[in-house]
Design a binder for these strands. Sequence first.
DNA 1: AATTCGCCCTGTCGGC
DNA 2: TGCCGACAGGGCGAAT
Length: 314
Amino acid sequence: MPELPEVETIRRGLKAVQGRRIESAEFGLPRLILGSTAGELTRKLQGRRIEAILRRGKYLVLELDTDTLVVHLGMTGQLTHAPANAKEDVRFIRTVTGLQKALGVHPVDKHTHAVLHLDDGSRVQFRDPRTFGKIIFIKGHAWEKNPRIQILGEEPLDLKIEPFLKKNFPARSRRPVKALLLDQSFLAGVGNIYADEALFASGLHPKTLVTLLQPAERIRLLTAVKTVLRKGIRYQGTTFSDYRKPDGSNGDNFERLMVYGRGGKPCRSCGTTLQKIIVAQRGTVFCLQCQPPRGGKKRAILKTVDKPRRPSHN
DNA sequence: AATTCGCCCTGTCGGC
DNA sequence: TGCCGACAGGGCGAAT
């Protein structure tokens, strides 16, 4: 699931298409397109120049000379940039049979739903097996006024923590803190992976009610969000299943995750078996020891921690 | 008003 | 071996 670090990595990886002109465009699955029909979009994009590639939350924004394309990758969306004359990339095709592999030919990939052919012979391809992605056509450059963009909260990496806590933090909300992190109108770009990682990094149980967070915990939480997102970008995103960089290669962050995707495995910090529960309708992995819940069980855990340690003589 | 739920979709995996 | 249900989940609109 491409979240802020994955989309940012893709944005950076697509730098080479800036300034290129779109010679032609193809669209395969009309329901992924908003703001235009597939046929009209093909016509509208012909001859357009890609001026800039931006990111807002999990949205990738392609500013053209006259209009704007906004892309959301949903859960399994991939945006790749294939060099001139490149064949279909076998790395994207999981169903290649032995014979096809031997012959070096593959069926046309049924999951590639959009292709932009550029004036240098390269192409940008949008592939999305689960089709939760969206391609939004916006006339002109006022894409920030689009309802889907307008409702987004602040960019986590830009925000100043103290003013944000005063102005934007729903201190009386009774949602679990994980639900808040997933809310794109609170912070734009945090998804299931980085929400779990941020909660682990700040030592908060995912079900903790927002209203119960102490000021110091709020600061810890926001600091952790920034930290885990920056780490995700540094390692070029988390490849769990479908995410790829624009060159088709994997991100390096998965093996560096502390909790996401590690349910039942030992905590990398304390060795306790990581729990998997459902919070806000999402699979959620956390460490009961490092992220103790409020109330009943907390007391028992504190008691254990507070036990005087036997001095070691070695 | 705030929060939760159901739905969209398809590849993968475990169980029988 | 093959069938089938469960699961993965971002975001939107409906329900509570």
